[in-house]
Simulated assay, not measured.
Amino acid sequence: MSAAPTTRQWKELYEAADQYRQAAIWRWMSNGHLFGVRDPASEEIGYCSVFGNGGEMFGLAVYMGTEGLRTIADMLAGKLDEDPMFSQHCLLLSLDDREELDPSEYKRIKQLGLGYRGKKSWPTFRLHEPGMMPWPELTAEQVVYMTQALDQARIVGEAYRDRPDALLDGEGERLLVREASPAGGGAYEWRSEWLEPAPLEETEAQAASSAPPLDELRIIKALKGAKGISGVWETDSFYVPMPIQEGSRPFFPKMALIVDQSSGQILKFGLSKGDEAAAAMNEHLLTLIEELKTVPRELWVGSESAGAALLPLAEALKLELMFSPELPALSEAREAMERRFS
Results as ranks from 00 to 15, higher is better:
residue 1 M to L: 08
residue 3 A to T: 05
residue 8 R to C: 09
residue 11 K to W: 15
residue 18 D to F: 14
residue 19 Q to D: 15
residue 24 A to K: 07
residue 26 W to E: 02
residue 30 S to V: 13
residue 31 N to K: 06
residue 35 F to R: 02
residue 37 V to F: 01
residue 37 V to T: 02
residue 37 V to G: 01
residue 44 E to R: 12
residue 47 Y to M: 07
residue 48 C to E: 02
residue 57 M to S: 15
residue 67 E to D: 11
residue 73 A to H: 09
residue 78 G to K: 00
residue 80 L to W: 07
residue 86 F to Q: 10
residue 91 L to W: 08
residue 95 L to I: 12
residue 108 R to W: 08
residue 119 K to S: 13
residue 124 T to C: 04
residue 124 T to S: 12
residue 132 M to P: 15
residue 136 P to C: 09
residue 141 E to H: 10
residue 159 A to E: 12
residue 162 D to C: 14
residue 172 G to E: 11
residue 173 E to R: 03
residue 180 A to P: 08
residue 180 A to C: 00
residue 183 A to Y: 11
residue 196 E to L: 13
residue 197 P to N: 07
residue 198 A to T: 13
residue 200 L to R: 08
residue 202 E to A: 15
residue 204 E to D: 11
residue 213 P to R: 02
residue 214 L to T: 02
residue 228 G to T: 09
residue 236 D to C: 07
residue 236 D to R: 04
residue 237 S to G: 09
residue 239 Y to L: 07
residue 241 P to E: 08
residue 241 P to Y: 02
residue 248 S to W: 08
residue 251 F to E: 05
residue 256 A to D: 06
residue 260 D to M: 00
residue 261 Q to A: 15
residue 267 L to H: 06
residue 275 D to R: 14
residue 279 A to F: 07
residue 282 N to W: 06
residue 285 L to Q: 00
residue 290 E to N: 05
residue 297 R to P: 05
residue 298 E to L: 03
residue 298 E to M: 01
residue 306 A to G: 10
residue 307 G to R: 04
residue 317 L to Y: 06
residue 318 K to W: 14
residue 320 E to N: 14
residue 325 P to H: 02
